[in-house]
């Protein structure tokens, strides 16, 4: 059984095709990175896979369950860190964590929150109102919240956007520590990030998944020495937008 399996996944907004038929299989415990140019359809794909929006057509199976029929069950076992920081602005960091723990009705709420506070080193910002934090801190909190229900499948949409180098490295360590236990789909514009964290990389352009493979495989397909060059080659070879 695959953690995620899609068949000909399509999303249209009026006459704009944001996602143009994606077939994807992700193994349980795999860390899969999605690379793509701005507007390639990464966020839209994640929104469909995470049950936020319905596909225009196509199929999605999460751990064998159908995303439409078994929506409620699936929602218990996945979580998302959205591209834009998603926290309640007038609540403190602690209240944000407690609020989401209650949304998921976590039984050992206190221990879970303490664990996340340690993992993300949130001690010093706990009592602060979320809207008063710097962008990078808000992001860390937003990612920490995504782990509150111990998801089996985690979607991270540009998790390190806006983080300083040290914070980024720290987050990589956290993500590394989750590897194997959680299936993670991560989008990023940083080649280094995709290369060092993920097992496989998918390259999206104009709503299509143009190539999938390990970093080494992609470099070979494109005949380039660096992932960045390979990415540029593969993402632009399709030519005109869909």
């Amino acid at each position: 059984m695959f953690a995620i399996e899609t068949k000909n996944l399509v999303k249209k907004y009026k006459d704009l095709t944001a996602v143009a038929g994606i077939d994807l299989k992700v193994q349980e415990g795999e860390l899969f990175a999605l690379l793509g140019t701005n507007g390639a359809g990464k966020t839209t794909t994640i929104k469909m896979l995470s049950s936020l929006i319905l596909p225009t057509s196509g199929e999605i199976k999460i751990l064998g369950m159908d995303i439409v029929k078994d929506r409620q069950k699936i929602r218990e076992i996945l979580n998302v860190s959205p591209q834009e920081t998603a926290i309640a602005p007038n609540l403190s960091v602690k209240e944000n964590l407690e609020f989401m723990a209650n949304v998921y009705q976590i039984p050992d709420r206190k221990e879970k929150i303490e664990e996340l506070v340690k993992l993300f080193r949130l001690e010093e910002v706990l009592p602060k109102k979320a809207k008063t934090l710097s962008g990078g801190w808000q992001r860390k909190v937003s990612i920490a919240i995504a782990l509150i229900n111990e998801p089996k499948i985690l979607f991270l949409d540009e998790p390190t956007l806006g983080l300083d180098v040290i914070a980024r490295k720290e987050l990589w360590t956290v993500i590394e520590s989750l590897k194997g236990r959680i299936t993670i789909i991560l989008t990023t514009h940083y080649m280094e990030e995709a290369e060092s964290l993920s097992e496989r990389i998918g390259i999206m352009a104009h709503g299509k998944l143009v190539d999938i493979g390990t970093a080494a495989e992609l470099k070979q397909i494109a005949g380039k020495d660096t992932l960045e060059d390979a990415f540029v080659e593969l993402a632009t070879k399709g030519g005109a937008p869909a």
Binding site: S51, L52, R75, V80, P82, A86, I87, M100, I145
Partner: peptide
């Protein structure tokens, strides 16, 4: 209009 609702939108609420 905030992403906070994306978060709640994928939760079991």
């Amino acid at each position: 209009t905030s992403s906070f609702l994306i978060r709640l939108g994928v939760s079991p609420m």
